[in-house]
Design a protein around this nucleic acid. Sequence first.
DNA 1: TCTGGGGTCCTAGGACCC
DNA 2: TCTGGGGTCCTAGGACCC
Length: 346
Amino acid sequence: MAARDWILHVDLDQFIAAVELLRHPELRGRPVVVGGSGDPTQPRTVAATATYEARAHGIHSGMPLRTAHRRCPDAVFLPSDPPAYEAASARVMAVLNEFPVRVEVWGWDEAFLGATTDDPEALAADLQHAVRTRTHLDCSIGIGDNKHQAKLASGLAKPAGIHRLTSDNWAQTMNDRPTDALWGIGAKISKKLAALGLHTVAQLAAADPAELARHFGPTNGPWYRYLALGKGEAEVVTTPWIARGHSRETTFRHDLTDRDAIARHITGLAEHVARDAAEACRDIARVSVKVRTTPFLTRTRQARLDAPTTDPATVARTALNLLDRHDLTRPVRLLGVAVEYTMPKT
DNA sequence: TCTGGGGTCCTAGGACCC
DNA sequence: TCTGGGGTCCTAGGACCC
């Protein structure tokens, strides 16, 4: 068989839990939940991940720790340790980079690879073996003609397997699945599609693009059909991603009602974000303040700065002005400050 | 299931201008 | 005087992803 281009998607299995189990081998085989400070009695804290043993009790990532604790009192709860995951991720990416492939890092536990080979399964097996030997972590690898196919294929390959999903077997594999099986269609859009009589991937693929555009907009509508046809981005970008923006937010264990305390917290977040920007050598063009009140009502107010800056005082002053435009009559459960960066000229 | 934190992109409506 | 048409920018919110 002649060599050709492939996209591979490498997905580390249960990444956060796997890293924790390397540090706590005695917990292997037990239900483990990672999240927050590891205290399952803390309200307003959710699970970052749960092991297969924990999932057997109905626990999943995003679930409040208190709910998880109720479902499985015997589960072990561990605090989240982002620096450790960062370090483990870097080791994995370094292994991938030693192969004759182009690597596009996609978060802590994922990467897209561009490869030219006549045997992508053999390459995938070599990659898995190298990652396992060097980092003691398992990964699933999807093989596709584009990122969308490769991404879904890695999901089908779990745990620790290899799966090929290309235009040749797309329809056979995907046609009968619900639309939210596609990468980019979630619960909300899937429900709206169902209301239009489009329940399966095959039905969405056969839908009228103009009709979809009317319901979902000129870009999104036709794009959903495009996804259902198994199409997607096929270019692997190896140059580092340039962030569009940055944000910091806090959910309070107990709601804030004191206006001064709210203002102080906004000031702190704004200065924090400004320092982050300065550290990243990026200028801030726009500031946004997010307020979530009971009952879980979220509002944002934003403003463009007169001139790009990283000055903490300027960002804090702008954020406080934006805070003034919020209705603060209800108890506040979350405050956030987000900024948009100026993009470097290409 | 009383709902984290950090991102990206798209849409819709209004302002403003010619 | 009762009202066009297009372009662009700004703002707020929504949806998705990990």
